[in-house]
Amino acid sequence: MQNINPEDFRVKAPIDLSKIPTELSMNTSKSDEETALDEIQKKLSLKQDAMYAHNRHAFLICLQGMDTSGKDSLIREVFKEFNPRGVVVHSFKTPNSTELEHDYLWRHYLALPEKGKFAVFNRTHYENVLVTRVHPEYILFENLPGIEKVEDITPQFWENRMEQINNFEKHIAQNGTTILKFYFHMSKEEQRKRLLKRLEQPEDQWKFSTGDLKERELWDDYMKYYEEAINQTSKSYAPWFIIPADDKGIARYIVAKIIWEELQKLTDIKEPELDPKVKDNIQFYKDQLK
C-alpha cells in the first residue's frame, strides 16, 4: 500500500473515463488495507488538530460518484479519527424552495469550511452540471431569466456554468481553502452487484430506491458529463482525482493518502505557542491543582 503515489490519480490532462481502470491489482488482504488506513487515520488526526489550532487554513473535500460508489462509507472510515470540532459533512440533496430562490452556488457558499476546519461535500456543486445535464428540465426550477423551456438551454449555458464553478473554486482557494475533488470511478457491473446486495440483505434494503435503477439506465449519459466536467474543471488550485472505486478498502486508503500528502505541503501549520508567562509558571499551576 505504501507504493501508492497520489499523483497517479490526479487529473493533469484531458481524460477518457472508459480507458481508466476501476480497480487496482494490489494483492493485499482486507487486514492489510485496514491496517494501512488505520495508520494514516492517526496521522491525519494529529495534523488536523494542529491545523485547527493554527486557524489559518481550511480544506474542502468534494466527493462525487454514481450511486453505491462508496462515498458515505468512505466519510465514516477516513474521518472517524478526526476531532468532531474540526470536520463538518454536508450532503446536498435536491434544492429546496429557499435554495431555489438564490443562485445555484449560494447553498454551497454557506457550507464552506471555517478556518482550521475540514468540510466534506458528499455530492457537491457539480450536481449542477451533472444531474441537470442529464435532466435539463431541472434547470427550469431555478427561474432563470430567458429560460422558459428546455430548448432555451444552450451549449453556451453549460460553458458559462463551468466557468462560474472554476471562478468559485479559484476565489476560495486564493483565500486559504485547499480544494480536493474525488471522483469515485466504479464499473457498471460493480454497481449492479452492490444494488443487488442491498436488496438481498434486509438490514440494507432501506438504502434501495427505485430511482437508482432509473438513473442506472442513464449510465452512459452520466459518464459523458462527468468526463466533460472533470476535464473542464481540474485546475492546479482545485484538482480532480480519479479514484478506482470497485474495491472500497483501497479507495479509502488512496483518498486518505492524498489528503495526507496535501496537508504535508502546508509547512507553516504548527500549534500556537504557549504564552511565556504561563509557560514559566506551569509548575506553579500544577501545584495548585494538586
Rank of each mutant, 00 (worst) to 15 (best):
N3C: 08
I4N: 09
R10T: 10
P21N: 02
E23F: 07
E23H: 12
E23Q: 11
M26Q: 10
A36D: 15
L37K: 05
D38V: 06
K42L: 15
L46I: 13
K47G: 02
M51N: 08
R56E: 15
L60S: 01
I61Y: 02
Q64K: 04
G65Y: 06
M66D: 01
K71Q: 06
I75N: 03
E77N: 09
K80Y: 14
K80G: 04
P95N: 07
S97W: 10
T98A: 14
L100V: 11
Y104D: 07
R107M: 06
K117M: 11
F121Y: 04
N128P: 00
F141H: 14
L144N: 02
V150F: 13
V150T: 15
D152P: 15
T154P: 15
Q156K: 15
F157P: 15
E159N: 14
E159Y: 15
R161A: 08
E163H: 07
F168Y: 09
K170F: 08
K170R: 13
T177Y: 04
L180T: 03
E189A: 00
E190Y: 00
P202G: 02
T210I: 11
L213F: 02
E217S: 02
E217I: 07
W219D: 13
M223H: 05
E228P: 07
K235D: 12
S236I: 11
Y237I: 04
I242L: 14
A251P: 12
A251R: 01
A256P: 13
K257A: 12
I258V: 09
W260I: 07
E261C: 08
T267A: 13
P276L: 06
K286T: 02
